[in-house]
Write a protein that binds this DNA or RNA. Structure first.
Lengths: 260, 260
DNA sequence: TCAAAAGTGTTCATTATACACCCATGA
DNA sequence: TCATGGGTGTATAATGAACACTTTTGA
């Protein structure tokens, strides 16, 4: 990409194209030589995969395959391959573990504390992804990978610095949830307002007034009434809605104002 | 750090401590061996150093030292040393270039597109830092490093993907500025409300009503009247204020509410 | 008929926005 | 005396928060 940029040395107008190409090759060789001398670090991506089911927030974890962390749970991670964009690497991990692509996925933060990996310096880039448990069937056939109730993790000891990473990601998720309709990705395509509110309450970890919550969402005008109702509920069924992502993209609010 | 964790194998209560230590050493050797096999990537940090002077937002850039980018400007960056936390690396770059520590500095994002560096795969972690030009004297003795008007950079071609990084950082800064009083770091310790507003207008790139702006800031109660006035202004001098960071830390607002 | 959640409006407080005049200073 | 920005208040609109009763359904 950068190597194909117009070079500033191309000012020497009279030189034929070949010389430019040769010069460029020369320069790239120089840069390659320079980069050779840089210290190198192993890179991993760790995916914090959030799900939502039975009215609580879940995180997908795997048993650590390192003997030193035997019995502990860890985030889903892998090394970045050579010449792989880290976004791709994260998507690959997600695909390998859950069989899914086209899932919400976003870079959150890079962790580089020297002692964070017992095998020496390893840098990790944390990605957050959200998927709805009920909607997709995961390829969870062995018992080495499991959905964990987020709340239950407070006491548990995770491998590496994964507790720290998880902590960063939940805070990121909370903030992001308040400004973007990410939460919808954790629900089935059609959902009741109760489920939606329950999702928000789980993630933001506080109760909300039901009437105000409904008012708020209806006022946004991004909910489409499917005409369908809940089934199999032991009480009066609620309406099912879809989220109008298109309309949201067109009308989403611009951030202005100073507030701190 | 991680290596000092209590190991789960310590369940074998009867074993003397020494055996544990030996076992731990064994395990760490295994992990070290494993990490040996990982692909390794050169890591750099790039600092996007924002300043504010003469009522406009500035960015500190250096002439690229790569022949291939001859004549182009680039962000201030360097390789991460072995066993150096990237936050430290960024602080080091800042110190080396500006002579300053205790400056606002925050990780923004990691860039990993395979073609982003002409010398092969190089990963960079972008840091944003804010410092007030007027207050500190920079060690800018040569003409290879300069403050650039942020607006003027729109047309200029930067080295590497530094345009992209800069773009990410300004967006990050805008958002962050609306929620935290970062901007104060770009001003001298004592500042007039006009300067403050001018700063916000430059960064957020929009005009604000002067009366409402003042009302807003006074309502926060984080401004301390120093009793001093501006000098050397060709008009009625304004009062000079300091920002009460302590009070801010204690009283800063909690984020609640859904808004998108 | 009961339990559980659906659905629905109003009031009050806070915050955002729009807007115009006199004042103090240096040139 | 003029140009420049300092300093100030009010009215209106929009938004957020608190709060209770009737309805529908399945068990």
């Amino acid at each position: 990409m950068a190597a194909t940029h117009e070079l500033s040395v191309s000012k020497e107008k009279s030189s034929p194209k070949k010389i430019h190409k040769d010069l460029e090759k020369e320069l790239i060789k120089d840069v390659l030589g320079l980069v050779e001398t840089y210290p190198r670090v192993p890179i991993t991506v760790d995916c914090v995969i959030f799900g939502f089911d039975e009215n609580s927030l879940k995180v997908l974890l795997i048993r650590s395959d390192l003997e030193i962390y035997k019995g502990k749970w860890s985030l889903l991670g892998d090394f970045a391959k050579d010449s792989e964009d880290l976004d791709e690497a994260a998507a690959r991990v997600l695909k390998e573990r859950t069989g899914m692509d086209d899932v919400y996925l976003e870079q959150v933060r890079t962790f580089s504390t020297p002692g964070r990996h017992p095998g020496g310096r390893v840098l990790t880039v944390a990605y957050c992804s959200l998927l709805n448990i009920a909607h997709h069937q995961l390829k969870i056939l062995d018992n080495e990978i499991h959905w964990h109730d987020f709340k239950s993790l407070k006491e548990k000891d995770l491998a590496f610095d994964h507790k720290l990473i998880l902590d960063n990601c939940i805070q990121w998720l909370q903030k992001r949830m308040m400004e973007h309709p990410l939460g919808i990705n954790l629900l089935p395509t059609k959902f009741s307002l109760r489920k939606l509110q329950s999702l928000y309450e789980s993630i933001l970890d506080r109760q909300m007034d039901r009437r105000n919550f409904r008012k708020k969402f209806f006022a946004m005008n991004f909910l489409i009434d499917t005409g369908e109702m809940e089934t199999d509920v032991p009480h009066r069924p609620g309406k099912l809605y879809k989220f109008d992502f298109k309309k949201y993209e067109q009308n989403k609010r611009r951030w202005t104002g100073i507030d701190f």
